[in-house]
């Protein structure tokens, strides 16, 4: 199939950037979306032009590196799917496809479709962990965990930190990401000791990074490639309010 791409090109953080039109031919339905972009880039290189920069790595939907908004939807039209797992059978010959970077103040563009998501790492560094040094653990089975809790923790822990929640949120809010980590640890006995401090410090860092506030559009939940439910945001709100209003209870 033959496609018309409208791709965001931005030389660097200081450049204003613009949409650019590209034609790409010879695309087959079994190609992945990124293989389609590879093909477009091969053509550009062949013409001596600079290829479109985009982030990608594992290409199997788990590393969370790929990050683009395709036709107005983060990771494109298929539910529960990262860009790298999206295949061209979702498109048809002659389609025009708009491709933009994840847009957020806290995700500054580095080049074209590549953004800096270091803000997510800083949120984890602020408290998204259990403080246990190597070597100080007791036997793993000394701490039984109700299967239901373990499953809930795993539902939240499935987050791949791609940032689609931020990209799709009309408010550029990162609450699904933060709530997922908080929810993961709050559902486990290991996470209890630092539960309150974690809620406070992660939210403080999230705010400091310049993410917006959640106003319950649930766009994040709709585009999350790991289908993490927004009810975790509700739990995070409760965690935070309890921790900040009654820190000692």
């Amino acid at each position: 199939m033959k496609l018309t791409l409208h791709v965001w090109r931005q030389a660097g953080p200081q450049d204003r950037g613009r949409m650019e039109m590209l034609q790409v031919d010879g695309i087959t339905s079994d190609m992945s979306f990124l293989e389609m972009l590879d093909k477009a880039n091969e053509d550009l290189i062949h013409d001596g032009k600079e290829p479109v920069a985009f982030d990608h790595d594992c290409r199997e939907g788990i590393c969370g590196t790929c990050s683009m908004v395709i036709d107005g939807v983060a990771h494109g039209p298929q539910e529960g799917t990262t860009t790298c797992q999206l295949h061209m059978r979702a498109f048809k010959d002659g389609d025009s496809i708009h491709i933009e970077p994840f847009r957020s103040r806290a995700f500054p563009v580095i080049k074209d479709l590549v953004v800096d998501r270091g803000s997510f790492d800083r949120i984890i560094a602020a408290g998204g962990y259990v403080s246990v040094n190597t070597g100080s653990a007791q036997d793993a089975n000394n701490l039984p965990v109700r299967k239901k809790d373990a499953d809930m923790a795993m539902d939240a822990a499935a987050c791949i930190g791609c940032g689609a929640c931020v990209a799709s949120c009309p408010n550029g809010s990162a609450m699904l990401f933060v709530a997922a980590k908080m929810g993961h640890l709050a559902h486990l006995p290991q996470g209890q000791a630092e539960r309150k401090e974690r809620a406070l410090s992660m939210v403080a860092q999230m705010d400091a990074e310049g993410f917006g506030a959640c106003s319950n559009h649930y766009e994040c939940e709709a585009v999350c490639p790991k289908e993490i439910p927004a009810t975790f945001i509700g739990s995070m709100n409760r965690e935070f309010l309890k921790s900040s209003l009654c820190p000692d209870s």
Binding site: Q138, D139, V145, A150, L188
Partner: peptide, 22 residues
Amino acid sequence: NNIIDQCVAQGVPFAREYGGML
């Protein structure tokens, strides 16, 4: 064996049986 202990202590959500054991 120490690895499993360490990872559980960190909160790695390993699969559990209904009795709460790994």
